[in-house]
């Protein structure tokens, strides 16, 4: 029963969603609308599960008897979580919590935004070191990658057009970058997208038909 009922749920919900595409009328259309709302609710609980699990793991690590430096960071995680939780739930005007000027927004602007954007900005440096390794043109394919990246990077920055300002119109870096993005890049992207679509379709069918049950775990 621990595997059969979930497999039946996945089959029923998946089949209804597929039928709804071919028969977009009652009851299938209405049912999928209802499922959509339910999906939002269950997904929200899944996000809660992730946050609560993080809290649990952090607190367990902090309260463990192993005296490592890392355990203090678990406390910092928990304290940060509770800070924004209390302010967002009780001190920011209810569902108006994101209105500019609220306490929640203050935390978002002054803590969340700088931390997240700096974290992603750091990747610029690591991408630079990765590109050094990737861009050593050791084969024809690697050279193509290098050329495309070079033109796109320079073509999307003002310096690209300044460097090639003497060239006739149509041959400047920004225009070459646009051409790469519009034609050869689109060709490769289409092949990837079609490949992904076929992969998703077959994987979805396996899930709905119960042939793929790894998401249910081992027991």
């Amino acid at each position: 029963m621990r595997r059969e009922i979930p497999t039946a749920i996945a089959f029923f919900v998946g089949i209804i969603c597929i039928i709804q595409f071919f028969i977009p009328h009652r009851p299938f259309g209405t049912l999928v609308d209802v499922f959509s709302d339910w999906f939002g609710i269950v997904a929200a609980f899944a996000i809660w599960l992730g946050a609560l699990n993080l809290l649990k793991v952090s607190l367990e690590r902090s309260l463990s008897k192993k005296k490592t430096h890392d355990r203090w960071y678990g406390l910092v995680v928990a304290a940060s979580f509770f800070l924004i939780f209390i302010i967002g739930m009780f001190m920011s005007g209810g569902d108006q919590f994101q209105v500019p000027g609220s306490r929640f927004d203050y935390l978002y602007v002054n803590i969340y935004t700088p931390l997240s954007s700096t974290m992603f900005a750091l990747l610029a440096f690591f991408v630079a070191s990765a590109s050094y390794r990737a861009f050593r043109a050791r084969s024809w394919e690697a050279t193509l990658l290098l050329i495309a990246a070079f033109f796109v990077m320079l073509g999307r920055a003002p310096v690209g057009d300044q460097l090639t300002g003497f060239m006739p119109e149509g041959y400047r870096l920004s225009e070459v970058a646009n051409w790469i993005m519009t034609y050869p890049q689109v060709a490769g992207q289409r092949a990837i997208m079609i490949g992904i679509a076929l992969g998703v379709a077959s994987a979805s069918l396996r899930l709905i038909l119960g042939l793929e049950r790894s998401y249910l775990g081992g027991e």
């Binding site: 290098l146 495309a148 990246a149 796109v152 060709a187 490769g188 990837i192």
Partner: peptide, 10 residues
């Protein structure tokens, strides 16, 4: 595909 990856990388 390499051109696509290069452009995406850029």
């Amino acid at each position: 595909l390499m051109i696509t990856f290069g452009a995406a990388f850029g």
